[in-house]
Design a protein around this nucleic acid. Structure first.
Length: 193
DNA sequence: CACGCGATTTGG
DNA sequence: CAAATCGCGTGT
C-alpha cells in the first residue's frame, strides 16, 4: 500500500488532526515492524496559539515547525519521554499535530518488550508510550513522513460521527481561551479495530 | 552561564 | 500525590 504523501499535511493542523484518525502509523526499526491505527490527536496552531511551542517564536527546537509540512517534529519532555508530531500547513506557518494514541496492530510483542513488559491497553495509549513502543526518538526530528523507518498508510477514514473533540491535555500554561479550544480529536472506541 | 520547568508516565 | 530527569528557553 502507498504511504501518505507529504502533500497530505499541507493543510491547517485542525483539519489534519481530524483526518489522521483511522490512519496507520508504522515504524520499521531494528528490522521490526510495529505500529497501529491513530485514534487520538491534537492540533497546535501557530504563534497565536499559546499552547503551541511556536508561540515563543522560531527557536532551535521549534525550527522544524517553520519548515515545509510533512516532516516530523520530535522533542523530549520531562527529560525522559518523546513526543511525536507532524508539521502541517505551509512553510513559515508553524503548525503541527501531536499523535497521542494508537490502537496497537503490528508487532505487539516487540512493542510490549520496548514498553518494559507492559501490554494490552498500556502499549500505545499515550504520546510518550507510543514513542517508546515504536522506538521513536529525536533522530526522527525533521525527517519526512515518507521516511522508510517511520511512515503512514491511508487506512480507513472513520465515520465522522465516531470523532469526538475535547480540550487539549496538559496545557495549563496556555491562555484560558486556548485551553478551551476543542482541538483534541479521538476516535470513539469500538470493537474490531 | 545559572535557573526553572514541561504537549508524561509511573509507582506510592 | 510526587518523583524521575534533561534539553531548551529565558534572563543575567
Amino acid at each position: 500500500m502507498k504511504p501518505l504523501p507529504t502533500e497530505f499535511f499541507a493543510a491547517d493542523a485542525v483539519s489534519v488532526a481530524r483526518d489522521l484518525l483511522g490512519r496507520q502509523l508504522l515504524s520499521v526499526v531494528d528490522g521490526e515492524t510495529t505500529g497501529g491505527v491513530i485514534i487520538e490527536t491534537e492540533a497546535y496552531v501557530g504563534e497565536q496559539d499559546t499552547a503551541c511551542h511556536a508561540s515563543r517564536g522560531c527557536t532551535p527546537r521549534t525550527q522544524v515547525m517553520y519548515g515545509p509540512p510533512g516532516r516530523y517534529y520530535v522533542y523530549l519532555i520531562y527529560g525522559m519521554y518523546h513526543m511525536l508530531n507532524i508539521v502541517t500547513a505551509s512553510e513559515g506557518t508553524p503548525e503541527a499535530v501531536l499523535i497521542r494514541a494508537l490502537h496497537p496492530q503490528q508487532g505487539k510483542a516487540v512493542m510490549c518488550a520496548r514498553r518494559g513488559g507492559q501490554c494490552g491497553q498500556n502499549l500505545t495509549n499515550g504520546p510518550g508510550k507510543l514513542c517508546q513502543a515504536l522506538a521513536v526518538d529525536k533522530r526522527f526530528n525533521s525527517l519526512p513522513v515518507t521516511h522508510p523507518e517511520l511512515y503512514l498508510l491511508p487506512g480507513e477514514p472513520p465515520d465522522p460521527v465516531c470523532i469526538l473533540s475535547t480540550p487539549r491535555i496538559g496545557i495549563g500554561y496556555a491562555s484560558e481561551a486556548d485551553q478551551r479550544k476543542l482541538w483534541r480529536f479521538l476516535l470513539r472506541s469500538s470493537r474490531g479495530q
